[in-house]
Design a protein around this nucleic acid. Sequence first.
DNA 1: GTGAATGCAAAACCTTTGCAACTGG
DNA 2: CCAGTTGCAAAGGTTTTGCATTCAC
Lengths: 148, 148
Amino acid sequence: MSKPIKTSPAIPELKLGGDMRMTKQRREVYDILMEYRDHPTATEVFMRAKEHMPGISLATVYNCLEALAKSGVVRAVNVDREPSRYCGNMSEHGHFHCEQCGSVVDVDLRQDILPADYLKIPRGSVVAKFEVAARGLCPACAKAKKNS
Amino acid sequence: MSKPIKTSPAIPELKLGGDMRMTKQRREVYDILMEYRDHPTATEVFMRAKEHMPGISLATVYNCLEALAKSGVVRAVNVDREPSRYCGNMSEHGHFHCEQCGSVVDVDLRQDILPADYLKIPRGSVVAKFEVAARGLCPACAKAKKNS
DNA sequence: GTGAATGCAAAACCTTTGCAACTGG
DNA sequence: CCAGTTGCAAAGGTTTTGCATTCAC
């Protein structure tokens, strides 16, 4: 596992939908996802959250992640059967998963092709969401393997 | 859940890799995946297999699916956190998942765009596999919703 | 004030594993 | 023959749930 990389904050204003309340815990979970862009798992978010909020529970982290995802400010990224990872980048993008080090990084999509044009979706379908993902070796792991 | 649809058999010759043995159970699991193209879960494969092999166990079905996948004659399809589904279609294709009825169907990719060209994968990466998936409502469920 | 959210523990769930018995090549 | 596979049961790890307490609005 690569070590977490803190990126420049720049955390947008946060507004939840419906009658969802903004609690200290949801704020903390959201801030962690915006601050660390390494797609942490719920457990990793939990460990980071505990540093600032020792009393927070893992179940609450799961609840917060679900609430934030339902509000559309965060999204879950699933790689095979591995634990769900969470992503604060809501722009349209894909993911690359390194099978060696386990890292998951955002990958830009080509802007000259609409995702909707990529698949021959049956007529009459209503498409809510696209997922494009690749897996293999990240540059660092590919290099390490070549030199071994 | 839609009811299983039997498609024309046309089951290819089956050869496993390494020192993997072709057992009755693996044959049965493989045949089920080739016969039903509806992406069954392990449990669904298990239930179908029991009709012909009452003694088969669920753990064996999992083992068989893993062995077949490792041999490259079958592949797992994962949709979020739902139970893994299994697919006997090894041609390059994507999947469409209906959030209403839960069905998963194969979707052809456009042939004029290479999957490798779709994502801006970082230079130096080694790409082993692409996954393209969409989710939403299948034609039947979209129609049902519109008329309600 | 009041309904929603938290925290804890226990449950649920899918999947894997340990091991004795069995079997395919 | 004998390493690989099965079947069973039990364990594993992630995620969800029930409920009393606390908190945001």
